[in-house]
């Protein structure tokens, strides 16, 4: 792990000097994570594609300004993604577009398409609820379940303590449970 971190430091140093290959390595390392984050925050793959490209373009343009102050590079990238997604939501609300509630099911790791179809309705209901949560809570759930991050890792990215993340997670679950109860959705049937 420490060797990897050291390597990332090296790659970051090279990338900040304009080394295309070094930035390419960073891109390869983080593109899937950022795409997933944006995909779950926007709810559609077309905008996720466009925003992911913009995240890396912005990162590339401003990488000279990135300074390692104990905050991981991934946190910096997620911050850029978060800001661009926030702008995207703002623009959409201004244009008053019909919200895209249907999240197209992209292939997930180790899943069969048939299984996706069977579960899609239930998943869609839950995803709709998740997207109605405040952005911070959505971030938390994405990092926890999509990225399988620990509370400590999430805390480093969100700039919160491990305890604060744990507490926020608990409150998020409670909020989701209340929403499920309001909509008479039962998840215990499995």
């Amino acid at each position: 792990m420490s060797e990897q971190e050291y390597k990332e430091e090296e790659v970051l140093a090279l990338a900040s000097q304009g080394d295309r290959d070094a930035f390419g390595q960073l891109y390869e390392h983080y593109v899937e994570r950022i795409f997933n984050y944006v995909y779950y925050r926007t709810g559609n793959s077309h905008d996720a594609e466009d925003l992911t490209a913009r995240v890396f373009q912005r990162a590339m343009n401003h990488i000279v300004n990135y300074t390692d102050r104990g905050v991981p590079f991934s946190a910096w990238l997620y911050r850029i993604a978060h800001n661009l997604v926030a702008n995207w939501h703002r623009d959409r609300s201004r244009k008053q577009e019909i919200p895209l509630d249907d999240l197209p099911i992209l292939p997930t790791k180790g899943d069969h398409p048939e299984r996706n179809l069977v579960r899609s309705q239930e998943e869609e209901a839950l995803l709709r609820m998740i997207r109605k949560l405040p952005p911070e809570r959505q971030n938390l759930l994405i990092l926890k379940f999509v990225e399988n991050m620990s509370n400590a890792e999430i805390g480093r990215i969100m700039g919160r303590s491990e305890g604060a993340v744990k507490s926020l997670y608990h409150r998020t679950l409670l909020a989701l449970r209340d929403q499920l109860e309001d909509q008479n959705l039962n998840l215990e049937g499995e």
Partner: peptide, 21 residues
């Protein structure tokens, strides 16, 4: 529900092509 999705290799390369260092 919140599972990691895998963008296609084509998409990853297309996005990389859009970046201008």
């Amino acid at each position: 529900t919140l599972k990691r999705v895998t963008p296609s290799r084509d998409l990853v390369q297309r996005l990389q092509g859009r970046l201008q260092m």
